[in-house]
Design a protein around this nucleic acid. Sequence first.
DNA 1: TTGTGTTTTATTGCCTCC
DNA 2: GGAGGCAATAAAACACAA
Length: 255
Amino acid sequence: MKRFSSSDSLDAYISICRSKEEKNQRSNQVYSREFQAMIDNLEEEDYREEASQAIEKKRRLSLDQVKALEKNFEVENKLEPERKAKLAEELGLQPRQIAVWFQNRRARLKTKELERDYGLLKANYDALKLDYNNLEHEHKSLTVQLRELKSKLCPENEEMSEAVEEEPPVSEQSKNHDLCDNVNAQFTASSSSSLSSLNWIQLSDPKTAASNTVYHPQHPHIVKVEDQSLFSSDVSCNFFSVDQAPTLQWYFTGQ
DNA sequence: TTGTGTTTTATTGCCTCC
DNA sequence: GGAGGCAATAAAACACAA
């Protein structure tokens, strides 16, 4: 197991002891032996305090050190032992400090990436939700439109128009067959107009796109999560999939 | 000045790889 | 079993409003 606690702190302590020696060398003053001993005692206490502070307290790296570390991180965000030692020497830091800095830097990078990904996903979700709401609204208005058309076609069977889903008798189908094209045309027009507002999802990973997705020629990177038969003419009456929509099979059986 | 929130540095424990 | 990575966390340093 790697644990670095004591040796690095020891290094800090040693560096402070060195500075103590330097201080002693610098002081050329001559005092009596007793007085000198007293001063030495006081200084010793100061140095111990300094040393313990150096052991316990943490120092922020200088701007230049951080800049150099950032530069190195950009090149490669993981450290080989040689690079770590070289950097430590260059910046006057302990190798452990370099390792810790890179560790924390990677953690910060990961956090930022997560935040960015979350933002993208949320934007996608919001756009999708908006599209869904638009479609739902369109669905409702088309249903109303359908009822009106049907009531015009069969004024004598007004009560039936309330239940669009129910299949009419075969005779009704043949009777109204010539009018189907008109209705169908209206729906086709509505459908194509709504095409632009359909739920197109841009996927970062194309593999995520399931097998039942549609390639859209104008949006090569965009797939639509919907049934492929949506706009095929033979079942075009059955595309209200949102909430048990009315089927228009009785209208278009002849096609 | 002080309380509080944020950032940075450092430690600990666990995991994986060789 | 040691080295190194990561997540979680502590604690010092810093920023800033009141």
